[in-house]
Design a binder for these strands. Structure first.
Lengths: 121, 121
DNA sequence: TAATAAATAGTAATCATTCCTAATAAATAA
DNA sequence: TTATTTATTAGGAATGATTACTATTTATTA
């Protein structure tokens, strides 16, 4: 894969935050560095970086968010402030459980806990 | 809420299958009974039926699927045949765990196991 | 049976994401 | 160093699920 300054900046931006930014947010930030960077370039490079295993994605409603945390992990989603909080994988043993109960080979577990985070109590 | 024949047909259709149909699929089926039923009517009534607690929704990629199973439950998603399989809630005790570890009050747990179902082995 | 207001059909708008293409730029060979 | 090749980009158009809008229809009730 050929070097691209756009891709470098995009990766830097994703790595600069734990807020699980959207493509649009990343695009806005990137424009501070490269005024003419296009949204398509941001999307394409985010996809490439995901394929390279350098970033992860999280589905949040109907938006994709990007995450520099590449460890397997799950999320707490606060319905009040919309924050996504990373948590370690809840239980690897669940995979074995599902295999024995349903004869279903689990590759990936997608867990989101929806509720109210510690800021609001 | 006023009676509507369209709404009755839509609920019947959702209750007729365990395939977690999309709004478009439901619309196609509904047109067999009511030739001029509009897609907007299908969406609006699916939303109303969800608010009434008569059906549930599942997010599948960027599509919403509808489910007549109104028990709390989670899903196995087969990446080969795209089937969604209902399973009972994996573990209610996880809520308490998350509360004590992260001081996060869980209302709802969203779990999808992605993998290969028993048809393919 | 007439009045009323909720529900519908049909279509336009929205919004995140993907696709397309001519122009640009990184890598490599001469 | 310079020319060549081809991946990458910018900019804008297209897509597809869903929502919004509005004139018309229909369930309800007085």
């Amino acid at each position: 894969m050929r070097y691209s300054y756009q891709r470098e900046i995009i990766l830097d931006i994703v790595r600069s935050t734990k807020t699980h930014p959207t493509a649009e947010w990343i695009h806005n930030k990137a424009q501070k560095k490269i005024k003419a960077i296009s949204l398509g370039t941001v999307y394409r490079n985010l996809g490439l970086l995901e394929n390279l295993g350098k970033i992860q994605t999280v589905k949040d409603n109907n938006v994709v968010r990007y995450d520099c945390n590449i460890e397997p992990h799950n999320h707490l989603k606060c319905k009040i402030c919309d924050t996504l909080i990373d948590i370690p994988v809840a239980n690897e043993a669940m995979k074995k459980n599902v295999k024995s109960k349903y004869n279903f080979d689990v590759d990936d577990i997608n867990i989101t806990f929806i509720g109210t985070c510690s800021k609001h109590n």
